[in-house]
């Protein structure tokens, strides 16, 4: 198929699935159902774009197609934070701390966490992005262990509150938060727009990027800042979706031959939104909420990751 036709198919697919998502099996209470679905739709689009955008940039600067920013431990920080809150306040959690406060603290913590890592790695004279990954990984594992420890000793009823945070859900979204997250995303995208062209060069690797006159270290810091912002906001909004990033970026590479990030980010975002909408639709109408969209996405994304690992013939 030609590039152009593929893009048309993607757009049509997206239109269809949005229509299906909004209108399928609405029942008589249109006034009630439609606005709620619209909020869910907006959230999904927001998360899809955030995840696609951050994963794509992350893979370009790490020169690696099988990583997502999730590997840096943001999700562990988020889960640990939620676990600690529930551990302290129990089932009174939401009387003590509002959703808004929770959201802000979670974003702040995740951002602080990423800054800490950047200082630890980039503060030294010899910068190495791989060490940043390993550091994030270990800290993530550490926080995860802490979180798991608290989750074991916690009361099973209170655990269900944590479980609500552990799995992505688009069902309990607060519209104020959605607006804030949307504004953040828009700001990040506008800011990032003028840096996109450098990513095409950074994809060639550090040495070529420096040779072609890029201030590589500064750019990497800017991108990492953008990534941490996007990941923090989307994680704090709906929870972690670990494998979505790998799934959608690699589908983009496979389906579209372009290497221009100007186009890639939008194609990838489109695919991410379609994947999430499809997942959510399945969860709502096929699984009847017996599972969550993040579990479905992680399941499919994980299998796709394995497929990639075993079929790839190139160096990664």
């Amino acid at each position: 198929m030609k590039q152009q036709n593929k893009i048309i198919v993607l757009v049509l697919l997206m239109g269809t699935i949005i229509a299906l998502f909004m209108l399928y099996n609405t029942g008589p209470n249109l006034d009630y159902v439609i606005p709620r679905r619209a909020v869910r739709l907006a959230t999904i689009l927001l998360v899809g774009v955030s995840v696609a955008y951050s994963s794509l940039i992350f893979q370009t600067i790490t020169n690696n197609k099988i990583l997502t920013p999730a590997i840096m431990g943001y999700e562990s920080v988020f889960i640990l934070f939620q676990t600690v809150i529930v551990f302290i306040y129990g089932d009174k959690t939401f009387q003590v701390i509002t959703h808004q406060d929770n959201f802000f603290y979670a974003v702040l913590l995740m951002m602080a966490f990423s800054f800490l890592m950047y200082i630890l790695i980039f503060g030294k004279s010899k910068q190495n992005i791989y060490h940043l990954l390993l550091l994030g990984l270990v800290l993530g594992a550490l926080f995860q262990t802490f979180g798991q420890f608290l989750q074991i000793v916690i009361d099973p009823n209170e655990f269900s509150v944590i479980q609500g945070f552990m799995f992505v859900s688009f069902n309990k979204i607060n519209t104020d938060l959605l607006l804030i997250a949307g504004a953040t995303l828009l700001g990040a995208l506008l800011f990032g727009q003028r840096y996109l062209k450098y990513l095409d060069v950074i994809a060639l690797g550090r040495e070529h990027a420096v040779n072609l006159g890029l201030n590589y270290n500064k750019l990497v810091k800017i991108y990492m800042l953008l990534i941490s912002l996007l990941v923090s906001v989307s994680t704090a909004l709906v929870g972690p979706v670990t494998f979505l990033g790998i799934l959608v970026t690699n589908l983009t590479y496979e389906l579209f031959q372009t290497r221009k990030h100007h186009y890639m980010v939008w194609l990838c975002s489109g695919i991410a939104c379609v994947a999430l909408l499809l997942g959510q639709f399945l969860v709502e109408h096929i699984f009847n909420f017996s599972t969550t969209v993040s579990i479905v996405v992680n399941f499919v994304g994980g299998l796709y990751f394995m497929y990639l690992m075993l079929k790839t013939r190139k160096a990664i």
Binding site: A203, L204, N211, L212, G213, A315, I316
Partner: peptide, 21 residues
């Protein structure tokens, strides 16, 4: 840096680029 890139270029030996270009 961008001005220097118009004056001086470097090619290293490690050029394994995994891009379809």
């Amino acid at each position: 840096s961008e001005d220097l890139a118009k004056r001086l270029s470097i090619l290293r030996q490690s050029n394994h680029i995994d891009l379809r270009l």
